[in-house]
Amino acid sequence: LRQRHVACLARSERGLGFSIAGGKGSTPYRAGDAGIFVSRIAEGGAAHRAGTLQVGDRVLSINGVDVTEARHDHAVSLLTAASPTIALLLEREAGGP
């Protein structure tokens, strides 16, 4: 079961505080899956403080732009754009009992 949710992050002077992996033109985060995933969350960064991202979340869109088939460098450029806030649509595998 997959759950979707939106995370809104305000960029700090240190950026957004998370890294992505995967996407076309880069090493897959999961074998056989060209999706883009949250690969790291920086301690004390914007994403960590927001508490809405988890490592392993699939990134579906960035500020309304679909990145499900995107190249890695395109997703990075969307994240590093000048916008002071970033809205992410994420998909998470629902774990637990």
Results as ranks from 00 to 15, higher is better:
23 G>L: 00
5 H>T: 09
34 A>Y: 15
14 R>V: 10
84 P>M: 06
39 S>Q: 07
37 F>E: 02
18 F>Y: 02
58 R>D: 04
96 G>M: 10
1 L>G: 08
66 D>R: 05
55 V>F: 01
78 L>T: 03
13 E>T: 12
71 R>Q: 11
31 A>T: 14
26 S>R: 06
57 D>E: 01
19 S>F: 07
72 H>I: 14
74 H>E: 14
64 G>S: 06
36 I>Q: 00
34 A>S: 15
84 P>N: 13
73 D>K: 08
39 S>A: 12
45 G>M: 08
65 V>F: 09
49 R>S: 14
87 A>K: 15
61 S>A: 14
78 L>Q: 04
18 F>I: 09
18 F>L: 08
95 G>S: 11
18 F>A: 03
50 A>P: 06
96 G>V: 12
71 R>T: 15
75 A>D: 00
74 H>M: 14
44 G>K: 08
65 V>I: 14
95 G>V: 13
88 L>R: 00
69 E>P: 00
23 G>C: 00
39 S>V: 04
38 V>N: 01
6 V>E: 12
65 V>P: 00
8 C>K: 14
9 L>Y: 07
41 I>N: 03
64 G>Y: 04
50 A>I: 07
9 L>M: 07
93 E>S: 08
80 T>N: 15
26 S>I: 06
49 R>D: 13
1 L>V: 14
85 T>W: 08
33 D>G: 07
78 L>H: 03
94 A>H: 13
80 T>C: 11
75 A>P: 02
13 E>G: 13
23 G>E: 02
95 G>C: 12
75 A>W: 03
40 R>D: 15
30 R>T: 08
83 S>Q: 13
51 G>D: 07
60 L>V: 12
66 D>M: 05
76 V>H: 10
28 P>S: 08
64 G>K: 06
9 L>P: 02
37 F>C: 00
71 R>A: 13
94 A>Q: 14
28 P>R: 07
77 S>K: 14
18 F>G: 01
46 A>E: 15
48 H>F: 14
24 K>S: 06
83 S>P: 09
77 S>R: 14
89 L>V: 15
30 R>D: 08
44 G>A: 07
82 A>G: 13
8 C>W: 12
59 V>C: 02
31 A>L: 14
34 A>F: 14
23 G>Y: 02
68 T>G: 05
79 L>W: 04
24 K>V: 10
22 G>I: 00
83 S>G: 15
4 R>D: 02
24 K>A: 10
